[in-house]
Design a protein around this nucleic acid. Structure first.
Length: 423
RNA sequence: GGAGAGAUGCCAGAGUGGUCGAAUGGGCGUGAUUGGAAAUCACGUGUACGGGAAACCGUACCGAGGGUUCGAAUCCCUCUCUCUCCGCCA
């Protein structure tokens, strides 16, 4: 949610932001409801104030007195009015809240304005894609690949997009998870292992609800959602809490499986490890002082980049344009690894600043220098999502003998300098 | 899954229908005292929404939702969560 006063006083700026993101949202409908709500609350407060005054008065009167009885008769009318007014206020508040939740965050001034992904800017590039491309093939076409990532049995057991990682494949996952967590730990992130299901309040705070309901698996019997990313439970860790200024910044990392229904995404992107319903990821989340959040975004991006560098995988960083920003984000960098076999860039990380948007929904605040309570800024970034890192590792490092040479940093975790496909 | 107990402010913990946003203690903050500190004393110390230039004022909030009543932290109903014991299990 954006700040209420900001929405009222800078509505033109908000309208522009909504337009630049290409999101369909009726700000004026909300502003109209906001006025109605305020008027309704004033009226209710007034009536309720009368009732309270009368109440105090009555406490001083003898219980059975004529005066007391007369007062009761009088107050019955008022009581009815208060109830009616309260009901209409509650109804207005419900509509108002729904409209409020439908307003997206707006892009930061440094974000390029463009309607679609073609407007994303290549911010930087690391490594040499050409070098690894020569004879590489897509991982899903490699002999033996299906023995370390078994899609067929996954489909039998669960459904499409839920593969088994087997043998070396499973060990590679475990190694990457531990490597990512170790690196985050060294950067001062506290490790958590979060719940994999969250309630609706949590999903609302981070912005999955009501905006992206269809993307999550929903367990209707218990009204719980399978997390699409560890961002959801982790960001909600401090929901409804107030930090003191020197608690900030607070940094947490978490490994978790992520579950995505990905409704509506079909086509060439979906082969092999490129897009799945369940995948593993290590996520970084930060709660920071509002003045620092854009510096923190750079630090977050660099943390994720450092992982790809240590894994010796060529990548590029994109500064996402307004039209490619999500509902909740003000600014976002995507990291894309070079897939030597598929000859294309694959997103492995997304580092975003939400400013106070999530914090306001989650009511995560801090006491600022003047002692006033204000929302913190939250950020998060993948560091990293596993499957596409795995495909790049395999495709880029496959040797003629069918083995995949591992980057130095992973070797201690696997106890070997290479893994074999197949066998 | 069964039985019981409970949920109040930063924490502990009073309050069983009216003057309760809520005693008291602790913590924290400011000040007094001190050479400095401890101890002691005084004052202060929630959040949200609304009104106001501001000081400040109003209203809501005692797990959540509903009900009874002129009036609810307090009575009734439903739900959620926590704790204890039993069962079951990793």
């Amino acid at each position: 949610m954006l700040d209420l006063k900001f929405l009222r006083d800078s509505s033109d700026q908000v309208r522009k932001g909504i337009r630049d993101k290409g999101i369909d949202c009726d700000l004026d409908h909300f502003l109209g409801l906001d006025q109605e709500r305020r008027a309704s609350q004033r009226a209710f407060d007034e009536l309720r104030g009368q009732q309270k005054n009368a109440n105090t008065e009555m406490a001083g009167l003898p219980k059975g007195s004529e005066e007391f009885k007369a007062k009761i008769t009088e107050m019955k009318t008022l009581s009815r009015q208060v109830k009616e007014k309260e009901e209409s206020l509650r109804n207005l508040e419900t509509d108002w809240k729904a409209a409020y939740l439908s307003i997206p965050n707006i892009p930061h001034a440094t974000v390029p304005v463009a309607p679609d992904p073609s407007g994303n800017e290549v911010y930087s590039t690391w490594g040499d894609p050409e070098q690894v491309s020569a004879a590489a093939k897509p991982h899903y076409d490699l002999p033996g690949f299906s023995q370390i990532v078994d899609f067929h049995r996954g489909s039998k057991v669960t459904g499409g997009g839920f593969p088994f990682f087997v043998g070396e494949g499973a060990k590679l996952c475990r190694a990457l998870i531990q490597f990512f967590l170790d690196e985050a730990g060294q950067r001062g992130y506290t490790e958590v292992l979060p719940p994999l299901f969250v309630n609706a309040a949590s999903a609302t705070a981070t912005g999955q609800l009501p905006d992206k309901e269809g993307q999550m698996y929903h367990m209707t019997v218990d009204d719980l959602y399978a997390i699409p990313t560890a961002e959801v439970p982790v960001t909600n860790f401090y929901r409804e809490e107030i930090f003191s200024a020197d608690d900030l910044p607070r940094k947490v990392c978490a490994y978790s499986p992520c579950f995505r229904r990905e409704a509506g995404s079909h086509g060439k992107d979906v082969r092999g490890l490129n897009r799945m319903h369940q995948f593993d990821k290590v996520e970084l989340v930060k709660w920071v002082h509002p003045e620092k959040s854009y510096d923190e975004l750079e630090e977050l991006k660099e943390s994720a980049e450092a992982l790809l560098q240590k894994l010796e995988l060529p990548y590029r960083v994109l500064l996402m344009c307004s039209g490619d920003l999500g509902f909740t984000q003000t600014k976002k960098y995507d990291l894309e690894v070079w897939s030597g076999g598929q000859k294309r860039w694959l997103e492995v990380s997304s580092c975003s600043n939400f400013e106070a948007f999530q914090a306001r929904r989650a009511q995560t605040r801090f006491r600022n220098e003047e002692g006033k309570v204000e929302p913190v800024h939250t950020l998060n970034g993948s560091a990293l999502a596993l499957p596409r890192v795995i495909s790049a590792l395999i495709e880029n490092n496959l040797r003629d003998d069918g083995t995949v040479v591992l980057p130095k940093v992973l070797q201690p975790y696997l106890g070997s300098d290479r893994i074999a496909l197949g066998q």
